[in-house]
Design a binder for these strands. Structure first.
Lengths: 247, 247
DNA sequence: GAGTGGTCTAGACCACATA
DNA sequence: ATGTGGTCTAGACCACTCA
């Protein structure tokens, strides 16, 4: 029994200790927007392999404390962007604060996984309107609205994206949306989505799925994916929780 | 200009292609709960390094398609657990479906980052009640309630965790909660939290922060962290979206 | 073109679960 | 005791940004 009374029963992994050290450094010696030393220098300074350092950086990015851009560098992040998630039909038919970007508007067969949620046959035709949300010139989310063609039938196939999207949205606005069901979960960005969000494929995203009901059926389904590193979802009518409330 | 007309401008990373192959394999050749071959075999089979395979597996786990347990193996996951997030004071004062586990009940100085959100002085004393949510014997979330001692002063310091927690909750239930503000974001689990969730440190979690207001002030703050891989947050009164609605 | 983060490799050892 | 996933290393090359 030569067990020395080491209090260090923890034995936390190296990447976690590294993360803690980096958090302290970020909070005490750096300010928002400031660039950190590059990964090779940092790993050398801390005496760890670059992969281990990267594991810590990845977690800090997921927490929204850092932003990394290939070729550019790693900078200290500011507070997360608040994405307001309304209790009502907010978001789609209306106009909201913040810049938005029309990506495209198409009509095609419903993606297999969404047929059940939309309440349509597996290969039914649906309109899809996709737009991108920006915040301070940075892309933060992709919002995708699916509307069964049965709900909005009169959209000529030949129109351009902009006109088609406008038609679908106007039609929907005239509908009386009665209620909605919503869920939030974590997903990963597919390559195209990732490109629009200016992130590598597989980046963690918050997926907000909203089913709009009208006339006892699902009239539309919105699937919004927000960058998990930069976004916080804010619910309720009041102002977001901790934001700028320090007197 | 010897540019051959290669359509393959994509050049997606290897881990993403691997992910796609694995998704197809999981969906076609495996069923929920089934164990996959181990990582060394899989990486050999696909002709990649183990680290590359693990990058794909990590994403699949984050998506909730796989569960990995050290020493045990990698199994195909079932559908995510729906965590109901009510519009009212649901969750804390009341009782809800699903098993819960009291972790501890303490009274200590408020954690620095929460003082502003609770509307108390930086080193003010707060009661903390912490419990764990289980689903089918698996831990899925840690729910932590902070109540300023100014709101519930009459809790003897000497009581055991169970009694203290019960007192705080009963006191809070007698209060008239007037409203709440809520946000959802992604975070990483600290080692202790991670242990309770049976995951490695740094695991991605969904952080739900709810501020309860009563009498024009913040009476309580609930910080709930749910395993991002196994949980989906369901909002609204209706049943969750796609769940079991296929007739 | 220099410097950055992103991808990928081929190993090694450790902590844990299970039988 | 065996086998699993978890951690860590020391390299290499690629894709991208920016001066």
């Amino acid at each position: 029994m030569a067990t020395t009374a080491t209090v260090e029963v923890a034995a936390e992994p190296k990447y976690w200790h590294l993360r803690t050290v980096l958090v302290q450094a970020i909070e005490s010696e750096f300010t928002t927007g400031q660039t950190l030393p590059n990964e090779r220098d940092l790993s050398a300074r801390f005496g760890v392999a670059r992969a281990t350092l990267r594991q810590a950086l990845e977690q800090l990015e997921l927490e929204g404390r850092l932003h990394r851009r290939r070729g550019a560098g790693t900078v200290v992040a500011g507070p997360r962007v608040d994405i307001t998630i309304g209790t009502h039909d907010e978001g789609w038919p209306g106009v909201e604060p913040g810049d938005r970007d029309l990506v495209d508007g198409t009509t095609a067969a419903v993606p297999g996984r969404l047929a059940a949620q939309l309440g349509v046959r597996p290969r039914a035709m649906v309109h899809r309107v996709r737009r991108r949300q920006l915040s301070m010139r940075q892309p933060v989310g992709i919002e995708c609205l699916y509307v069964p063609r049965a709900v909005v039938p009169r959209v000529p196939e030949l129109l351009g994206d902009n006109r088609r999207a406008a038609l679908v949205l106007r039609h929907l606005r005239n509908n009386t949306l009665e209620g909605l069901t919503r869920s939030v979960e974590v997903g990963v960005a597919e390559p195209e989505e990732a490109r629009l969000l200016e992130r590598p494929p597989g980046t963690a995203v918050l997926v907000v799925t909203t089913a709009y009901t009208a006339g006892g059926r699902t009239a539309a389904l919105a699937v919004a994916t927000y960058r998990a590193d930069t976004c916080r979802l804010a619910f309720g009518e009041d102002a977001p929780i901790g934001a700028r409330s320090a007197s």
